[in-house]
Design a protein around this nucleic acid. Sequence first.
RNA 1: GGCCCCGUGGUGUAGUGGUCUAACAUGCCGCCCUGUCACGGCGGAGAUCGAGGGUUCAAAUCCCUUCGGGGUCGCCA
Length: 592
Amino acid sequence: MLGLKRTHSCGDLNSKLDGQEVVLCGWVSRRRDHGGLIFVDLRDRSGMVQVVFSPEVAETAFRKAETVRNEYVLAIRGTVKLRDKDTVNANMPTGEIEISGQELRILNAAKTPPFYIQDDIDVDETLRLKYRYLDLRRPEMQRNMILRHRVTKLMRDFFDRNNFMEIETPILIKSTPEGARDYLVPSRVNPGKFFALPQSPQIYKQILMVAGFERYFQIARCFRDEDLRADRQPEFTQLDIEISFIDREEMLTMMEEMIAYLFKEAIGVEVSTPFMRLSYEDAMNKYGSDKPDLRFDMELIDISDAVKGSEFKVFESMLSSGGRVKAIKVPGYSHIPRKELDGLVEYVSTYGGKGLAWMCYTPDGIKSQITKFFSGAIVDKITVATNAVEGDLLLIMADQPEVVNPALGQLRLEMARRLNMIDSAKLTFLWVVDFPMFEYDTEEKRWVAMHHMFTSPRDEDVEFLENNPGQMRAKAYDMVLNGTEIGGGSIRIYQRELQERIFKAIGFSTEEATEKFGYLLEAFDYGTPPHGGIAFGLDRLLMLMAGRSSIRDVIPFPKTQSATDLMAQAPGSVSSRQLKDLSIKLDVLTKK
RNA sequence: GGCCCCGUGGUGUAGUGGUCUAACAUGCCGCCCUGUCACGGCGGAGAUCGAGGGUUCAAAUCCCUUCGGGGUCGCCA
């Protein structure tokens, strides 16, 4: 670089280097021009340091510094100097020192950026995404990307130490039924045929177990063509793991160890193990979610028995048709405004709740729109069942369990958010286990695998496979952190006979199963070890570690909600020549 | 596909039918300034209010359509 060789990084400088000559490279974060003295905050990946230019020290460098603007790229030769006590900046890690600039080279000029290159900016995300290279230049985004690097490095260390092998699996694979919508890639060589991008490396990693690799992991890109959310991108990264000769307990223990290691080494947080275990059934009944946020209590309380025999027809008819009446107790919120209560009714309606009753235990007695239907004995029973005391608010819903649990579970979360009951510094891990094997798809009128169709049922439940599949539970497990599912997996089926019975149970004909998964079934015939696996959502894990509320902040180049890349303007059109090569004719539906 | 929120100088906002010839902050440009660190002082430029259509004597403001972004339900084994 014109004879200047970089010797240090800005953030690494400290008072021990007093008097030393250094050469720094970086971007101008800010320039403060005092006329006869110019301060430049020089920023690189490591941090920031103040450089001072004075005409008495270096006239030429000073003149050049006058022309410098924000985000110019500079190389600076200067001397590390301790600052006078009254000019020390305690808010800056390098605030005890500054660089006395002797030589300045402008490596490149820069236009004024459309937003500030600093933390905590308040700017439309559209702009951040369009100028992602500037957004990524902001210290907090740099930290997020550094964290991402650190965490994947630690994962590789951990698995290497535990005798795992990192093995790549194909990106161009065969489209398989079930699950999310596939991204498709046309095959030029095979006109009319398509590859799919993997939703996960599921089958390949099981084949690797058949192949005898015993312990596999991969930091694998996965693709799902579904609608986006704050925690869902069309392409995302999984830490994918598969292990032979392992049972569920060993699996959970090893993963707890791995997670604890990551949190300790990456962000210095001690995670205590083992994690709490909760059955799917308990999770749904107590928290109305298969990924409950356990940073606060407020459990769902079943008050069906307490309200039985009341004059309230809504409850009575619901109970007689197999429904339940459940409540959450919001402590100390009996003074909730009527208007907010009305809003809550609307809130639960988005989750299928048809109504919401309330009981406010105010100092002037219980205020409620339903107690007029209740005898004093029933009111007492409700109070006992919920342990409600003066000041509490009960929110009550009646419906079939599959409606009342999720809706009340969402309300539980919402009330906790509104009343600031969630300690954001807390990390509460748990395992949810014993998921149902199947759930009934009312549209398709058949059973579908809840996890996926390679999941092993619990041994004691296999007998229900043909007669009562709804009762079967699977050897599946999810790791949950603060209400977010960060990982999930299962012990797999490794016997062809059982796998074929499962296919049959979810309505796969033998021909269909053979066409789609024949190679897996055939592989099972050649000595398949018992095995199981798990996959973690790397982006979600990083989001939580970084304390962000969207995975877009930990993905360098994420897509918008409409699955576009605002910087690269992808997706885009292709030439007719390209389409012809692929034997593709477009038939784009235009909106009226 | 449904519902909700947002779109006004570079950026973030104010403005909810006429006095808007669009305000404020910050940024930008110029001049001054030797200890600032969100430096300071003075001056200046900069927006036809996302786009299109309509209502009206009059639209940033009301109506319709549309585009873009975000949240969410469905969807995501």
